[in-house]
């Protein structure tokens, strides 16, 4: 099943990476069992012609076979089926942007699209930004690291995905354009000024590559 696969993959990925200062010992073991969806109603017989549940998703460059319920949103699948918890639920209503992911390079609210709608499309999440071989941070991540971006950082994964989308479309933004490009993400710590500086730096780094 997709779950087991994902856990294995994540662990392998982690072990390869240089670990951060001040590692946290976590009290709970990661598990693939808990997930959010699936009521008696949802598990009933399927109507003829309805979309097949077992689908292939392309996430961070990897094809994954996943059993997805019809009413499952992409953020739910990522967090609760594939255990990719970098994508956050801030509102689950397409209002805050904490769940932002890229679909074919374009930023979308993961909470507000059905997983079945991304079949055959390339999904990129915060977990997929680092170079899979070297563990090197993406340009945006480097810029954020350099500028010391974010405070509580619950919004960070979403903002970073929107910055990734922005530099693809507009690698040479003004501060005002960057603010517009990021206006679909909220930061309640209101670290907007620094986030904007990160975005401008990311664009600058992207141009120099």
């Amino acid at each position: 099943m997709g779950d087991a696969e994902s856990v294995g993959l994540l662990e392998k990925k982690y072990s390869r990476r240089s670990f951060i200062k001040g590692v946290i010992a976590v009290g709970a073991t990661a598990s693939s069992t808990g997930y959010l969806l699936g009521g008696a109603q949802a598990l009933g017989a399927q109507m003829p012609g309805a979309t097949e549940r077992l689908i292939t998703l392309n996430i961070n460059g990897q094809d994954r076979r996943v059993d997805v319920l019809p009413h499952e949103t992409l953020a739910m699948t990522l967090r609760y089926r594939l255990n990719m918890t970098g994508t956050k639920f801030g509102c689950d209503r397409a209002e805050c942007g904490a769940c932002t992911v890229l679909v074919d390079g374009v930023n979308h609210y993961g909470c507000s699209m059905l997983t079945h709608q991304v079949r055959g499309r390339a999904v990129t999440t915060i977990e997929g930004l680092e170079n899979p071989d070297t563990g090197e941070l993406s340009i945006v991540q480097q810029a954020v690291l350099e500028q010391g971006g974010f405070q509580c950082a619950f919004c960070a994964p979403g903002f970073i995905m929107s910055m990734e989308a922005m530099i693809r479309v507009n690698p040479n933004p003004t501060r005002e354009e960057a603010a517009h490009a990021l206006s679909g993400n909220l930061c309640r710590c209101a670290d907007y000024d620094k986030i904007l500086t990160c975005a401008m730096r990311a664009a600058e780094l992207a141009r120099s590559v």
Binding site: G39, Q41, A42, G44, Q46, M47, G49, A50, T51, L69, P70, H71, T73, D92, L114, H116, Q117
Partner: peptide, 21 residues
């Protein structure tokens, strides 16, 4: 609130199919 009730999903490829559904 905040939990989508189950539904069956159809993803037709043509307008005619959608209208038929």
């Amino acid at each position: 609130r905040d939990m989508i009730p189950a539904f069956e999903l159809f993803q037709p490829n043509t307008v005619d199919d959608a209208l038929a559904l």
